[in-house]
Amino acid sequence: MTTNVAVLARWFAYMDSDDPDRVLGMISDDFTMSVQFSQGAGKSAEFVGDREGLVSYLAQREKSTLVHHIDVGSVVGEYELVLGRTTRDGAFEASFNATAQLDAAGAVRRLLIARTPEVSFTR
Rank of each mutant, 00 (worst) to 15 (best):
V55M: 15
G106A: 07
A45D: 08
F12P: 00
I27M: 07
K43A: 12
M26K: 08
M26Q: 01
V7W: 06
H68M: 10
D89A: 15
D19K: 12
T116D: 05
I70W: 07
Q60F: 13
F47R: 02
F47D: 10
E93H: 15
F37W: 14
N4W: 00
M1T: 14
S44R: 12
S120P: 10
V23N: 07
V108N: 08
F92G: 12
G49I: 08
T99W: 06
A114K: 02
V5D: 04
I113M: 12
D21F: 05
G53S: 12
G53V: 10
H69L: 14
D29K: 15
F47L: 06
Q60N: 02
H68G: 13
V76E: 10
K63N: 07
S38Q: 09
R109F: 05
S56F: 03
E46Y: 02
W11T: 00
Q39V: 12
S64I: 04
E80M: 06
V67E: 02
G42L: 12
V108M: 05
E46P: 00
Q60K: 14
A94N: 12
N4F: 06
T2L: 02
N97V: 12
L112R: 13
L54T: 03
V67N: 04
L83W: 04
I113Q: 10
R110W: 04
R109H: 08
D18T: 07
A104H: 10
A45K: 15
S38I: 01
V67L: 00
A105R: 11
S95Y: 01
D30F: 05
Y14W: 04
D16I: 08
Q60G: 15
F31T: 12
G90P: 00
I70A: 10
R22T: 06
L8Y: 02
F31C: 11
R10E: 10
V82D: 07
W11L: 08
T116M: 02
V108G: 00
P20T: 14
I27S: 07
G49L: 04
M26Y: 03
L54E: 00
R110E: 03
R88L: 12
Y57P: 08
I70V: 15
S38D: 11
G73I: 00
A41P: 01
S28R: 11
A105N: 05
G73L: 01
R10C: 00
V82R: 09
A45Y: 07
F92T: 15
S120C: 11
V82I: 13
L8W: 02
S56C: 11
Y14N: 06
L112P: 01
A114N: 11
E118F: 09
V67C: 00
V48N: 08
E62Y: 08
R115G: 04
Y14A: 11
F121Q: 03
G73E: 04
R88V: 14
G40D: 06
E46G: 06
V5N: 09
A9R: 10
Q60D: 05
L102D: 00
Q36P: 03
V119T: 13
L81Y: 10
L54C: 02
D16F: 08
V119Q: 10
G40S: 09
G40W: 02
G42N: 06
G53P: 01
F37H: 12
D50T: 13
S34P: 03
V76I: 13
V119H: 13
V55N: 11
D21T: 15
R88C: 09
R10L: 07
L58W: 10
Y57L: 15
S44W: 09
E80V: 10
D30E: 13
V82C: 07
S120H: 03
A59D: 14
L112V: 08
M26H: 09
T116N: 09
